[in-house]
């Protein structure tokens, strides 16, 4: 019982730390493409992992309807795991296609391939 509770609490704490660093990264990084990586820290480490933590935490307590809370957060976490990369890819694709972002990459092999 208490093992699940502790594990869930640790995962939620991890999520908070990841959110903090993701936010700092969003402020600190210079352009869209680099900020996207900081945003990934926020979505996976900061949204999906704490939801799995909520699942474990709910299973570890003895509140009524704990299975419903655990199941809902598990499914939400899975949907975020599937949707977040699709959203990030769509954003990056659109930004690259529109060519509105000025940056100085070390190498841009997509631009070479699309010529």
């Amino acid at each position: 019982m208490s093992i699940l509770l502790t594990l869930g609490a640790i995962l939620i704490l991890t999520g908070g730390i990841c959110d903090l660093f993701g936010a700092i990264g969003l402020l600190k990084f210079p352009n869209f493409y680099v900020r996207l990586h900081a945003a990934t820290v926020g979505t996976i480490g900061g949204a999906a992992v704490p939801l799995f933590g909520v699942t474990l935490l709910a299973l570890g307590t003895d509140i009524p309807n704990k299975e419903a809370i655990a199941g809902a957060s598990l499914i939400t976490g899975m949907i975020i795991l599937l949707v977040a990369p699709a959203g990030a890819t769509a954003l990056a694709y659109a930004a690259h296609k529109a060519r509105i972002i000025e940056w100085k990459p070390k190498t841009d092999q997509l631009k070479e391939a699309r010529k």
């Binding site: 899975m78 949907i79 599937l82 949707v83 699709a86 694709y93």
Partner: peptide, 20 residues
């Protein structure tokens, strides 16, 4: 119009969202 992974994920997500 969007890259392949986005479309494939959309298909799975539609089934899951209907269930939810």
């Amino acid at each position: 119009e969007l890259p392949e992974p986005v479309c494939a994920v959309t298909k799975i997500i539609v089934a899951m969202i209907l269930a939810v």
